[in-house]
Write a protein that binds this DNA or RNA. Structure first.
Lengths: 338, 338
DNA sequence: TTGTACGCGTTATCAG
DNA sequence: CTGATAACGCGTACAA
């Protein structure tokens, strides 16, 4: 691999001048500039990124932490983020935490070791106390996940309110025994949803019932298992709030194909995220729409602005609107006995 | 940020000794080792990655090129790759090419600029001539995509054979006018599929009909458009081969919800990849199953082995088995008039 | 067992 | 306008 030194020699000039040409700086004769460009082409010279990083203390790289990519919500999120980052000349490192506190911490180390300039956290299972110290090494921005007690920029929607609305909708359809289905260890966001769920129940004189809750469902096959669990062990359940369209889809698939249950009459189901699948299912799935792309774009923009103008921007909170999309999985013809 | 120098000073030793401790090398008294570890903790010292990279000429990072993440096949692929790479201590940079020759080239530059040690290409729209020169800068491995003329390791299944089998199946179901639906600019892999499709047709005395082909469909909403195109402009089409479960799903959704067409009797449809959605659709979608995780794992393994033992391993080709999953979208009750 | 000194490839400073 | 030199932080021959 040719170095800047090789180019300088071939052009009969100094490293400094070559460097000037590389970085489009003024004060170089056109003639010499051409000679250097010629030399660079002849040698197939490309500046060494590691050396640049060491010198400039910048990596032009960001890390995106998220639970897992198979969840299409995060697939969409990172797709948009990568595109946006790419426009600014930044690389994106994917970091799947699988909701593990340790993995989340390990990936945050990328900031300390200067492998990335900044971090986007779309996964958040650790406490603020543990995340905060990393701020000394570079900016962190939350996306989707959020914590009220933190002091950094956050881009998200109101999950509490969304869960509240979805639950009220189920209650309005006459559901009286609603199962709360969530996935994996509690993230900060999932706590918010639970609050909204509980608040809605209380408006109808109900309270959160642990025995109707399921906390291990995160994909389609889990959704299928959830159905059997409800059928066999929770027969009085007549509605399901689930934090995922995939889980909802698996549940509905199993209910209709293996047991001839009628959705929504036997069981009303709401999902979350408005994935394609929620529209394509028969019956289509009532869900919460989020402006994924806008949030992704904004997040990258906020982070990169902080990188470009350190300290110039105060932490800000951007709350994006959501929308309850009522579809067939909750439109009951007969209402349950009150 | 503390440097190795700071640690050395605090411990009253030299940089070299500190370096030895960091890299778990022998020849350091236990007592001094402890003193250094103490100093590192006190200072919150972490080795600077940029400096290490420059010194060692290694980045412990790989780039994965793929068309787009919203296609769940690639989501699954990169999920598995990231996990595997992470086990080996490697970071993964996502590179979405959107089937653009230029973007693909730009991302290959990461190899030249030493931002990554190696590259996995699951996107391949450029010619071998243009990719080959990058091999001088580090190893490249193909995954999913492949070219017979290249001389590097490839991990993939036999797309020609898979397309052949799917098409024969459609023909056996009595389809006589099969539309070939593909997405975007031709990758090398999509050419293989087309060959298999054409070969199957010829066994039934048919030939590829350009006027029945659609080459712009890559997601659910494209699939919906495809249905209307067939309905309005290609009414004699009775079967569809599509390279994507998403397209198949969109097509089926639109056919059944907007027009009361009966799938498969009015139109038989095969997808590709065995995404969850192909199982969940009503009717379920006949598709090709690929061992995504195995391919992803193998790909990462092959690349990393090449990084650990440069030149030791001869390029190899790993062809994984596929499977035609016949589901309801092609199980016709009545066969077309022969 | 420990320390000295050099170099990895760039860029910024300063002198000419 | 151009070039010598130092510095970024680390690892490693080599010497002690």
């Amino acid at each position: 691999m040719a170095t800047i030194e090789d180019v300088a020699k071939l052009a009969g000039l100094s490293r400094t001048t070559v460097s000037r040409v590389i970085n489009d700086q003024p004060y170089v004769t056109d003639e010499k500039r051409q000679r250097i460009i010629q030399a660079m082409n002849d040698l197939g010279y490309v500046p060494n990124s590691s050396a640049r990083r060491l010198r400039s203390q910048k990596t032009e790289t960001i890390a995106v932490l998220l639970p897992r990519l198979t969840n299409p919500f995060f697939g969409n999120l990172i797709e948009a983020m990568e595109e946006k980052a790419s426009e600014w000349g930044y690389q994106v490192i994917v970091c799947q935490t699988h909701d593990s506190k340790k993995k989340e911490m390990d990936y945050l180390q990328l900031l300390k070791t200067k492998q990335v300039d900044g971090v986007i956290m779309a996964s958040l299972v650790n406490d603020w106390e543990d995340v905060k110290p990393f701020l000394e090494c570079g900016p962190i921005v939350f996306c989707n996940e959020y914590m009220d007690e933190s002091s950094i920029s956050m881009i998200h929607m109101d999950h509490k309110q969304a869960a509240y609305e979805a639950t009220i909708h189920l209650l309005e359809q006459g559901c009286t025994h609603i199962s709360y289905v969530s996935g994996g260890p509690e993230s900060h966001l999932s706590k918010k949803r639970k609050e909204g769920f509980t608040e809605a129940l209380s408006e109808y004189g109900l309270s959160f019932q642990e025995d109707l809750a399921i906390d291990w469902a995160m994909d389609v096959s889990d959704g299928q298992k959830v159905f059997h669990m409800i059928k066999d062990e929770l027969p009085h359940v007549d509605g399901v709030f689930t934090g995922s369209d995939e889980v909802a889809a698996g549940l509905i698939y199993e209910a209709t194909s293996s047991s001839n249950w009628v959705i929504p009459d036997d069981l009303a189901v709401v999902g979350f995220d408005n994935q394609m699948i929620s529209l394509l299912m028969v019956p289509s799935v009532t869900t919460i729409e989020q402006p994924v792309k806008q949030m992704a774009d904004k997040t990258v923009e906020v982070l990169i602005q902080q990188l470009l103008h350190p300290g110039a921007l105060a932490p800000n909170r951007y709350v994006y609107p959501h929308q309850l999309l009522v579809r067939n999985s909750t439109k009951r013809k007969k209402l349950s006995i009150q």
